[in-house]
């Protein structure tokens, strides 16, 4: 173990190497490490966010399903009610129509019978006149008794 100038040379080499490492080695590696740490942190945060979103979506879908079921049940009840109502309405309408038709028929029948009675009255009068004519032909002149006959006809 002797001391000599190697010592100073070694000292200078030491500083050169340290300077080189400081300048060209340390910064890129530390930068990469920091960036990777940030990436990993971001990834973890994103995963956490994704998990949270999934939970929210699940909750929302359950809610939507429940709402849909409720709505369909309500619709079913409503439609049944509506159907019953339609049937009721149809029944009422049919009854009104039937009544109207019946009333119409009745009125017509009445009219018909009135008309029949009228024509029957005419026929009866004609027959009566014809009979009377035949009876009276020999004794009464039609022309003379026309006034009388029409008066009878009026009374019929």
């Amino acid at each position: 173990m002797n001391l000599n100038s190697t010592l100073f040379a070694q000292l200078v080499v030491f500083f050169i190497l340290a300077w080189f490492t400081m300048k060209f080695v340390w910064p890129p590696i530390v930068k990469a490490l920091d960036e990777r740490a940030k990436k990993v942190a971001d990834g973890l945060a994103a995963a956490e966010r994704g998990k949270h979103d999934l939970e929210l979506a699940t909750r929302r879908s359950v809610e939507a399903l429940r709402e849909g079921k409720e709505k369909s049940a309500e619709l079913l009840i409503q439609s049944e009610k509506r159907a019953a109502q339609i049937i009721e309405e149809a029944k009422a309408q049919a009854k009104i129509e039937a009544d109207r038709i019946i009333a119409g028929g009745k009125a017509e029948a009445e009219q018909e019978s009135l008309r029949a009675r009228e024509s029957l009255r005419d026929h009866v009068a004609a027959l009566a006149v014809a009979g009377a004519e035949k009876i009276l032909r020999r004794e009464i002149d039609a022309r003379v008794h026309a006034e009388l006959l029409s008066a009878i006809k009026q009374d019929l």
């Binding site: 190697t6 040379a9 070694q10 080499v13 050169i16 190497l17 080189f20 490492t21 060209f24 080695v25 340390w26 910064p27 890129p28 590696i29 930068k31 990469a32 490490l33 920091d34 960036e35 990777r36 940030k38 990436k39």
Partner: peptide, 25 residues
């Protein structure tokens, strides 16, 4: 001593430099 310390010193910074050049995140 000078030869080996300088040669190994260069090897050291060379290895570290290579790692630094290739360093990615």
């Amino acid at each position: 001593t000078l030869f080996y310390s300088i040669a190994i010193g260069f090897l050291t910074v060379f290895l570290l430099y290579r790692a630094a050049q290739k360093a990615t995140s």
